[in-house]
Design a protein around this nucleic acid. Structure first.
Lengths: 287, 287
DNA sequence: ATCACTTACGGGTGACGTAAAAATC
DNA sequence: GATTTTTACGTCACCCGTAAGTGAT
């Protein structure tokens, strides 16, 4: 059998084209690498290089061998992360979401539904979430659409509605009951949380002329908003979660456009259904 | 990175269920294997076993890790054969066939078409041939149908017609020009070569009531046939190839059923087209 | 002269085997 | 008592680094 370090050596040589460069990158001496390549040829009973006195180049067989070796190493890497993820999936419940709202809500819900759990911040794209779900990095993920994959099952999670926050003196505050449209505030400056996931794309699309002053710390943002007359954002979820320590000096105006309402779905691996049943029961009882 | 011997150890343990049994199979001592398993857990930062004082069992994570490890090892094996086959494909031309006729014919043709070459006997099923072609064990294969795979290209090779050999005194010999049908000789005893590839299925299907006395050595079979009054087989290919040392005491009666005629195709990997061009030119010039 | 590779040589890590202890059946 | 696993310890393989040699640019 071929030990992994030999495959790593071969791949490094393919990448760096000379033994010296590859050896340096592998943090071993150049003669050591030279011997490894010889050993690999011995084991395979095949010559992998064209050698001249002071030059060594992969031959046709060597090139293909290095490609195959790279695949093996990648498979090994994937194996390691799969094993680690699988292990932690037995001990914790981790969540990925395309928006922070459901994540914050779940933060209050999960501890009562599951004994112990861990949290994960929202990733960028839904594709990344799906890929990480398949690798079991997440126990389940929150997305805005049902996923078309036979290994994955989906359940309705809930909706989130966007509001604009403003000081009472703001002219728009008269619309606090009737609501406004994105176009009414397109061009205005906003204070907002930086990691809003899918809302990022929505605001960019619906209010391309606005400027957004972002803040990646929620409590700092809150302080900032209290002291400012700039517009801000909120959602029904965030308003419900932070009821109590919300700013009494702010009023929240609903946005009427359909794009201001997002529907979330909870997606999980079919094979983990049993483990997640408490959550699924909770979700269906809620709706 | 995880060295291969650790993965082998894990897989062996999964297969043999105890360290002692697995160690014996791996030809190492049992304490050595015990340490390897500990080391693997260290590297993965995950526990793979449920341990009691004198018993060690794979836990859930361990079971899945062992499965993944088995896949890696299999990939490695495949890599090694791919590399070896690829290397030899650069030095030799090897042929697989579903029947011996084209193989014998090619034995006389290939040396003049290719500088150096090697030979392979006919494999059992066409599926095996295809699989070995994809692994580059064969440079090209002879089958009875075009193969539906985008990596493989096919060319017409030729046909082979089956004859029944009999002594002149045999009552069927009057049909030497008009031919007979399988049903006319179903139930008769035949002397025949054992490794006839696809012809095996044909005779079983068309003459299920006959008995076949097989011989795996061609020259022994020839001696046997000369001394016997039993029926035998021949084809247009074999008669052409062995013209000269054929038995003058035998006559050959054609079989008229369509099943007695087989059409062969030459299949090769698209990526090797250039190498095989001399052969393809020869084939198209022949037809 | 510098660079790149191979061969030669000595050293240290670590994987191995033997031995012993503990625990279960 | 037999089996199975773990720990302890000494040994040896083997992989590595340094040094030296050869050939090419």
């Amino acid at each position: 059998m071929i030990e992994t370090y030999l495959l790593e050596a071969l791949v490094a040589f393919k990448d760096y084209r000379t033994l010296s460069a590859a050896a340096e990158n592998l943090h071993i001496s150049q003669p050591a690498l030279s011997r490894s390549m010889q050993k690999l040829e011995e084991i395979l009973e095949v010559s992998l290089f064209d050698r001249t006195k002071n030059r060594i180049v992969l031959n046709e067989t060597g090139e293909m061998a290095a490609s195959l070796a790279r695949n093996i190493l990648q498979s090994q890497d994937e194996m390691v992360t799969l094993i680690r993820n699988y292990d932690s999936s037995l001990h914790t419940v981790s969540v990925g979401s395309c928006a922070p709202g459901p994540l914050m809500e779940l933060g209050t819900v999960l501890p009562s539904v599951f004994p112990d759990f861990s949290f994960c911040s929202s990733a960028r794209s839904e594709d990344e979430l799906i890929s990480d779900l398949l690798k079991r990095k997440y126990s389940f993920i929150i997305t805005t659409r049902n996923i078309n994959d036979e290994r994955i099952s989906s359940a309705f999670y809930g909706t989130e509605h966007l509001f604009v926050g403003a000081i009472p003196a703001h002219p728009l505050s008269v619309y606090r009951d009737t609501g406004i449209s994105f176009s009414d505030v397109n061009g205005e400056n906003f204070l907002m949380f930086s990691d809003v996931g899918i809302w990022h794309d929505i605001k960019e699309k619906m209010m391309p002329d606005s400027r957004y002053i972002t803040q990646d710390d929620l409590s700092n943002l809150s302080t900032l908003v209290k002291s400012s007359s700039l517009l801000s954002f909120a959602t029904d979820l965030s308003l419900r979660l932070f009821r109590g320590d919300e700013n009494p000096e702010r009023i929240y105006i609903p946005i009427n456009d359909p794009e201001a309402t997002v529907t979330f779905y909870c997606n999980y691996l079919l094979s983990t259904r049993k483990k997640l049943e408490p959550l699924l029961n909770y979700l269906s009882s809620r709706s």
